Amino acid sequence: VPASPTSGARAPVVRGWADVRALTAGAGMRRVFVKLAHGSSASGVLAVETTGAGRVRATTSVERDPAGRLFNSLRVRRYTSEREVAAIVDALAPDGLHVERWLPKAVQDGRAADLRVVVIDGRATHAVLRTSRSPLTNLHLGGARGDLDAARAAITAAGGRWTDALEVCERAAAAFPGTRCVGVDLLPASGWRRFAVGEVNAFGDLLPRLTGLPGGGAEGLDTYAAQVAALFPRTPHLTGTTRTTGTSTA
């Protein structure tokens, strides 16, 4: 996982931008992600860069209006004023913040790339490659589905194995034994040889029209059908069946 000055039992509480500045400077981190401790769909996430001269830039979907109110927007924007970045972080801090190192990702066709891997009952069943020109690869924020086969080929060419990448996701899911389905954000490092787990999402299965990986046990099934099949393994598929009522069928 990415290094974080806010992880662990003795991690300090982040009360605002001043704490973020101090913690990242102390850890030697010039590029970090600042995230809500509990959130989804990149809400309240900022990709923050600090130059050697101390200038700050943040990329985020957070919109701040003239009254200082925050809104989650579908348009990713950049803030280049430290005063604006500080105001956003200060407003988010009461909900709890997590800070982690911003890891350089692998690239496909000039776009940053990562993977969302769905793990059901401990087994990686679905995967999608997400690419973006911004640090936020979420598909609803302008990210696009990339070429998964090309990514697998890049991993092999770098001397790695696709199965190892899936096993990383399965080990991450095993840390949450009470959750039967999770969506793991797997971050391939530059060069496609190493991987880190960015997040484990409780609601990471919204992947329309995506069917299961070959050999993953959910071939031909989308993420929801795969979960139903895992819950009721002996139940036949009901799609297209009819029931006789005596006078009509439905």
Rank of each mutant, 00 (worst) to 15 (best):
R21L: 10
L23T: 15
A25H: 10
G28T: 07
M29L: 15
M29Y: 12
F33S: 04
L36R: 14
L36F: 12
L36K: 12
H38A: 13
S40T: 12
G44N: 08
L46H: 11
V48Y: 00
T51D: 13
T51Q: 04
G52Y: 09
A53R: 14
A53Q: 13
A53M: 05
A53N: 05
G54Y: 12
G54P: 12
R55Y: 06
A58Q: 02
A58W: 00
T59K: 04
T60Y: 02
T60Q: 05
P66S: 10
A67I: 01
A67R: 15
F71H: 13
N72P: 07
V76I: 15
R78T: 14
R78P: 00
Y79V: 00
Y79R: 00
S81V: 09
S81Q: 15
E82G: 15
R83A: 13
A86V: 13
I88F: 05
A91W: 03
A91Y: 09
A93H: 09
A93D: 04
D95C: 03
D95S: 13
G96K: 08
G96W: 09
L97Q: 03
L97I: 13
V99S: 05
R101M: 09
P104W: 06
V107Y: 02
G110A: 09
R111A: 11
A113E: 00
A113Y: 00
D114A: 04
V118T: 12
V118R: 05
V118E: 01
G122W: 09
G122F: 11
R123T: 15
T125P: 01
H126A: 06
V128D: 03
